[in-house]
Computed example of a mutant assay.
Amino acid sequence: MSVAIIKKRTSAAKRAPANASNGSRDLLMVNSVAKAFRVLRVFDCSRPSLSLSEIAEIAGLDVSATQRFTHTLLKLGYLEKDAASRRFGLTVKVLELGQSYASANPLVKQAIPYLLHLNKDTEETINLTVLDETSIVFIVRFLSRHVFNTDVVIGTRLPAYCTAPGRAILSRLPSDEAEAIVSSSDLRPLTAHTPRTVADVMGRVARAAAKGYALQVEECFYGDMSVSAAVIDGRGRPVGAINIGVATTRYTPQEMEVRFAPMVVAAARSVSDISL
């Protein structure tokens, strides 16, 4: 082999990514953007304001990089800084991202009339949720005057495996796909009624598939019951779920199931019949 060819191959090897052969490096990934989102995501209800060092520690970044990201996000209007405490917090501008999602989402547009109708007819809390990895996310919520849990708002995430909307969605997925999601979930006991094994959850998913709706009683919060049915797209895939939530002090599980299950199934079927 000639020296020229050897040099050419050596030069090419130096230019190639170190782990290109195993495909583990995403060449299109902009790491600085990912880190900026890590900074934004450190804030929540338990951490509404944080110092620079706290942000760095939680986000897993060094202080110098965190300073650059927080400065950029301040300039863009997504973070604010208290002059006295020098602590950072999110601004209302962050809500623009959620509003853009909701206004552009065809599921939201098509479901809202049916959700409003359910809310008026039942006088109970009505939600529209979608599955994101192992969680459900609330994207529309109409409250009842009997509302039980005021901590659940638009954007709230709850485990799919122990919620009625989550199991309604899982029940319309291929069983191996649903089981993979459940197996990846953190099956921790949120209440004494939370299912704790994959087999238990999958049994409840199977019952939801047979009935056409899912039911949960105090699995995520004490005093809370919910019945839910999945919304299906034109390919037969679940794209979300509609649920009715009530307090255990107002109905027995049997009363709730008899009264509300047919209504939530009809609403979900009506939204599913619209082209998504």
Rank of each mutant, 00 (worst) to 15 (best):
E80R: 15
E80A: 13
E80P: 02
K81I: 07
D82P: 13
A84G: 10
R87A: 01
R87V: 04
F88P: 02
F88M: 08
G89N: 02
T91L: 05
V94N: 07
L95H: 13
L95D: 14
E96F: 10
E96L: 07
L97W: 13
Q99P: 03
S100Y: 13
S103W: 08
A104R: 15
N105L: 01
V108D: 00
Q110D: 04
P113Q: 10
Y114H: 08
L115S: 15
L116H: 15
H117G: 05
H117N: 10
L118Y: 12
D121T: 15
D121H: 14
D121A: 12
E123P: 01
I126E: 03
N127T: 04
L128C: 06
L128I: 05
T129C: 04
L131C: 03
D132N: 09
D132F: 12
E133K: 11
E133L: 08
S135A: 11
I136Y: 04
F138Y: 10
I139W: 09
V140I: 12
V140R: 10
R141K: 14
R141I: 09
F142P: 00
L143Y: 05
S144V: 01
R145S: 13
R145M: 04
H146M: 03
F148R: 01
N149E: 06
D151H: 14
V152N: 07
V153I: 15
I154P: 02
I154M: 13
R157W: 08
R157S: 06
P159M: 06
Y161A: 00
C162I: 11
T163D: 02
R167K: 14
A168W: 01
A168S: 02
A168R: 04
S175F: 06
D176A: 11
E177W: 12
E179D: 07
E179Y: 09
A180Q: 11
I181M: 10
V182Y: 02
S183N: 07
S184A: 15
S184Y: 11
S185R: 08
D186E: 12
L187Q: 01
R188E: 07
P189A: 13
P189R: 15
L190K: 15
A192H: 08
A192S: 03
R196L: 03
R196S: 08
R196V: 08
T197S: 05
T197G: 04
M202T: 06
M202R: 05
G203F: 12
R204K: 15
R204P: 07
V205M: 06
R207P: 14
A208Q: 10
